[in-house]
Each structure stands twice: as structure tokens, then as C-alpha cells.
């Protein structure tokens, strides 16, 4: 029987699907029986997903212009020395 503390230590392994089958079954059993840990798992997952969906600032115009200049002077297949 996994304790709640152990569950919090295994959350990432569970989300990464990096658990032996037996441990996964024990983890899921705990989740069915413990509302607190179930919320905890949801919160960790939502935190990770929110990070990934935060809009990134676009590169500044002058950076884009400099890179575009680099692109214009590039000849595909030719390595510049």
C-alpha cells in the first residue's frame, strides 16, 4: 500500500509512464481511494500543461530583420567559411 507521501514522490514517474506495471496498479488504486492525492495529481499535471501553453513573446522586429538578412545571404548547400 503506497502512502500519500510516496504518491507525491511518484507523480512524475506516473505522468512519464516510467513505472513498473505493479507500481502503476498500486498508484491507480490509491488514486481511486484518495481524493486528496487525486487532486494533487491533477494540480501537478495542470501546472505542467499551463507552462507549455503560455504564449511566448515573439522575437523583436530587429532580431527578425537581422535573421532575415542572414537568410537572404545564405546559399542552400554552400557552407560559408
Amino acid at each position: 500500500m503506497l502512502s500519500c507521501r510516496e504518491i507525491t514522490e511518484l507523480v512524475t514517474a506516473y505522468l512519464e509512464r516510467a513505472m513498473p506495471r505493479e507500481q502503476q496498479l498500486a498508484f491507480l488504486k490509491h488514486m481511486r481511494e484518495c481524493r486528496v492525492c487525486w487532486h494533487y495529481l491533477r494540480q501537478v499535471r495542470a501546472t505542467a500543461r499551463a507552462l507549455g501553453r503560455a504564449p511566448a513573446a515573439p522575437p523583436p522586429a530587429e532580431v527578425k530583420a537581422a535573421l532575415l538578412a542572414q537568410f537572404r545571404s545564405w546559399t542552400p548547400g554552400v557552407k560559408k567559411e
Partner: peptide, 10 residues
């Protein structure tokens, strides 16, 4: 124990 959040989705 942690409580349910007012926001639990991304």
C-alpha cells in the same frame, strides 16, 4: 492536505 483548487486545468 492540499485542497481542490479553484482552477485545476491548464
Amino acid at each position: 492536505p492540499p485542497t481542490a483548487w479553484s482552477a485545476e486545468t491548464a
